[in-house]
Design a protein around this nucleic acid. Structure first.
Lengths: 213, 213
DNA sequence: GTCTATACACAGATAGAC
DNA sequence: GTCTATCTGTGTATAGAC
């Protein structure tokens, strides 16, 4: 890759600041309530200048999603390069990373309902590529865990994938945090539990015998 | 209760039509994308007339939430009046009812983030009363199920309640439905499973012995 | 109470000077 | 590329006749 000129590096930094602002605003207010004026103000730049970098609000959202998907992929690739582990544990690690990101107010979340936004995202190659890549890598672990019996094989892999994505933005996290009664670690542990083991009572997974009833 | 005059009955019917329109629009487009013009058009009424019945968009949302909470309470009261059943099964029945409602496009969902909307709802007595009532009735079953060991007693009851509310609007449902590959019954069964038993492999709850894993 | 027509505010996007 | 100033569309809410 060619070395960037000084001017290009400055450009990159500014765009990074913009996307970071978008990311934070998407995490706190959501897409509809986020205004381009706010983004410009947060990035310390005039709105018209912002539109030289990104041609629409939807493109801003796309850039924020690309950013978070890149982070997720980096985390996943780190796991893959690390010591071997059970597929289920890898999935739990990814889920925990996503929830931590949300707790830190760094997980952008978009409305699934806005049709023009969805269309814009599906036309966004950078976004679609990363989404595809991440889905595939998670898919390997999902089918692996279903094969070794640690994930319910009766569930479609697609459902598991959707559920993991959904839990990354689970509003329950924000509700528990705002109640102020629990530590972040408690919240994370509980949500990982309810995601993988459900609300039901824990059952010993080996060796011990249950009472009937 | 006093009998309503003919004129009052007509009024009631019209307001019912309005709230029903709001309900459907909130379920499909969400609060921010729903416009008062659409509501008026759907209800077959002029916008100015609509504002004679409800003084703001937020009040419209409140009325829709009151409507769905009333339906939920009616369902819960039906269960309480019916044959005795395990607390866990009652909770599952309520969760399934909520998911069915969502599947039918009849579950309004509001953004948790919009601060002015939240404030308006918290000032809405009719809404708060019903929310309180429903939470209490569900709370009885939750603590009951935790006591009899069918729900994980390590989880705060508050977390269980939030999770049930959140699953009533779970976006996973819409994603699976739009994939078009599954029947509504399959989707409901799977989501009830993942909610109460998690994504993990099912474990026999009594009598049989597991292999060590 | 219902309508048509309109006021008002605000957000997305642009023009044009520097 | 950055800025100030502005255009344009749209959405909530209201005025005023009937």
């Amino acid at each position: 890759m060619a070395r960037l000129s000084y001017r290009e590096q400055v450009l990159r930094l500014r765009e990074d600041a913009i996307v970071q602002a978008v990311n934070r605003l998407l995490a706190t207010k959501g897409y509809d309530l986020m205004t381009v004026d706010e983004v410009a103000a947060e990035a310390g730049i005039a709105k018209a200048s912002l539109y030289k970098h990104f041609t629409s609000k939807e493109e801003l959202a796309g850039a924020a999603m690309v950013r978070v998907l890149d982070r997720a992929l980096a985390f996943v690739d780190g796991l893959r390069a690390g010591p071997p582990a059970a597929a289920l544990d890898q999935l739990k690690a990814v889920a925990r990373w996503a929830m931590e990101t949300q707790l830190q107010g760094d997980m952008p979340s978009l409305p699934a309902q806005n049709s023009t936004l969805s269309a814009s995202l599906q036309a966004n190659e950078a976004y679609m590529d990363r989404l595809f890549d991440l889905s595939n890598k998670l898919g390997i672990w999902i089918t692996g865990a279903q094969t070794d019996g640690s994930l319910n094989p009766a569930l479609p892999a697609e459902l598991v994938l959707y559920t993991l994505f959904a839990r990354a933005c689970d509003p329950v996290l924000g509700l528990l945090k705002s109640s102020g009664q629990y530590t972040n670690e408690q919240i994370l542990d509980w949500l990982i539990t309810t995601c993988f083991d459900g609300l039901g009572a824990p059952v010993p997974r080996s060796g011990s015998r249950m009472k009937a009833g």
